[in-house]
Amino acid sequence: MSKHVAVMAASPGRLGGVPVQGFVTVPGVGSAFGDDGNLSDEMVWKGLDALAFRLVKATDKALCTASHGSSAET
């Protein structure tokens, strides 16, 4: 069975970690969140939203495949 993960990195620097395809970074993590604890950077928010969507979609696809008795990897 496939195992699906989502990867992100945060750092105080401008890069936010090592950016690679499918990988979300949070640059300037010390100022990326508002006083309310929510992300204040819209681009980071959109990246995290897209990452979560892809993870849920991949997991759902794997669960559907498994429930139909197929051993095909996704």
Results as ranks from 00 to 15, higher is better:
53 F>E: 03
34 G>K: 01
51 L>V: 01
38 N>D: 09
35 D>E: 14
26 V>Q: 02
36 D>N: 13
37 G>F: 09
23 F>R: 14
61 K>F: 04
31 S>L: 12
25 T>C: 15
29 V>C: 13
21 Q>I: 10
52 A>G: 03
21 Q>N: 12
45 W>I: 04
46 K>S: 11
50 A>D: 07
51 L>H: 00
59 T>S: 03
6 A>I: 15
54 R>Q: 05
36 D>I: 05
63 L>P: 00
73 E>L: 04
46 K>F: 09
72 A>M: 08
61 K>Q: 11
6 A>L: 15
66 A>W: 00
59 T>R: 00
35 D>T: 06
32 A>V: 10
74 T>V: 09
25 T>D: 15
43 M>E: 15
63 L>N: 05
11 S>H: 10
37 G>E: 11
32 A>W: 10
47 G>A: 03
21 Q>K: 12
43 M>Y: 10
7 V>Y: 13
28 G>R: 13
64 C>F: 07
62 A>K: 01
14 R>C: 12
6 A>W: 07
70 S>K: 03
63 L>V: 08
34 G>M: 05
28 G>V: 02
37 G>Y: 08
68 H>V: 05
29 V>D: 11
41 D>I: 06
2 S>A: 03
29 V>H: 07
38 N>C: 07
45 W>V: 05
42 E>P: 14
45 W>A: 13
72 A>D: 08
11 S>F: 03
38 N>R: 08
11 S>P: 03
27 P>G: 08
9 A>P: 10
41 D>L: 05
23 F>G: 07
19 P>I: 03
71 S>A: 11
12 P>Y: 11
24 V>M: 12
56 V>N: 04
49 D>C: 02
52 A>I: 05
49 D>G: 01
45 W>Q: 08
10 A>D: 07
55 L>Q: 01
39 L>Q: 04
71 S>F: 05
73 E>K: 09
41 D>M: 04
41 D>A: 06
43 M>R: 15
13 G>L: 14
58 A>K: 06
21 Q>F: 10
70 S>I: 01
30 G>S: 10
43 M>W: 10
14 R>Y: 14
16 G>A: 13
60 D>Q: 01
5 V>R: 14
26 V>L: 08
23 F>N: 13
27 P>K: 06
39 L>C: 01
28 G>D: 13
46 K>V: 06
13 G>S: 15
49 D>Y: 03
1 M>D: 10
40 S>L: 00
47 G>Q: 06
71 S>P: 06
39 L>K: 01
56 V>T: 04
62 A>E: 05
61 K>R: 08
69 G>V: 06
70 S>C: 00
45 W>G: 02
50 A>L: 09
9 A>G: 14
6 A>M: 15
69 G>S: 07
66 A>N: 01
58 A>C: 02
73 E>M: 06
8 M>K: 04
48 L>A: 01
11 S>R: 11
62 A>N: 00
1 M>Y: 03
41 D>N: 14
29 V>R: 11
57 K>A: 12
48 L>E: 07
71 S>R: 09
36 D>F: 07
65 T>Q: 11
27 P>A: 08
27 P>E: 11
61 K>E: 12
67 S>D: 06
13 G>K: 14
34 G>V: 00
66 A>L: 04
72 A>H: 13
23 F>C: 14
20 V>S: 14
62 A>H: 00
53 F>P: 00
